[in-house]
Simulated assay, not measured.
Amino acid sequence: MICSSISALAGLTVVAGTVGLASAGAAPVSAPTFWSNTQAGPEAGMADAVAVSAITGSPNIVVVGSSPRLTDTAARISPSDCLGAWRPGQQQAYAGRPWIATVTTVLADGKDADAQHIVQETVVQFGSPTDARRYLQDSAAQWEACAQRVVTVVPPSGASRPWRLGQPATAAGAPMTLSQVGPTSRCERALAAKADMVIDVLVCSSVDDPVGQGAVLIDAIATQSKS
Rank of each mutant, 00 (worst) to 15 (best):
G110T: 09
A27V: 05
T102P: 03
Q116L: 09
V119W: 04
Q180P: 02
A192P: 08
V19T: 14
P168N: 13
R87T: 12
Q120T: 11
S4Y: 06
A113E: 15
R69D: 01
Q167W: 08
T18F: 07
A215M: 07
T170Y: 08
S128G: 11
S66W: 12
W99A: 01
G127K: 13
T102I: 04
T104F: 06
V52Y: 04
F34T: 08
Q116N: 04
T104K: 02
G57H: 10
A192F: 06
G45V: 13
V50R: 13
D208Q: 05
K194M: 05
M176N: 12
W35M: 11
W35G: 10
V52Q: 07
D109W: 02
V15S: 13
S179A: 08
V207N: 03
R161I: 07
D196F: 13
A132N: 06
C82M: 04
G127P: 00
L70T: 01
T122K: 03
R189C: 02
S179Q: 12
T73P: 02
A147M: 06
S58T: 01
R134E: 07
K194E: 12
V29N: 05
S23R: 14
V63R: 08
S227R: 13
I61C: 03
D109R: 00
N37F: 15
G214W: 14
V124L: 04
T56C: 05
Q137D: 15
K226I: 11
T71I: 07
A8P: 00
S160A: 08
P162N: 12
G96L: 09
R133V: 03
A8R: 09
Q148S: 14
S30A: 14
G45P: 04
S139F: 06
E121Y: 02
L217G: 00
V52F: 04
P32C: 14
Q125R: 12
L12K: 13
C82I: 08
A44G: 00
V15H: 09
S23G: 10
N60Q: 09
R149Q: 15
W99K: 01
Y94D: 00
D196I: 00
L202H: 11
V203A: 01
S225Q: 14
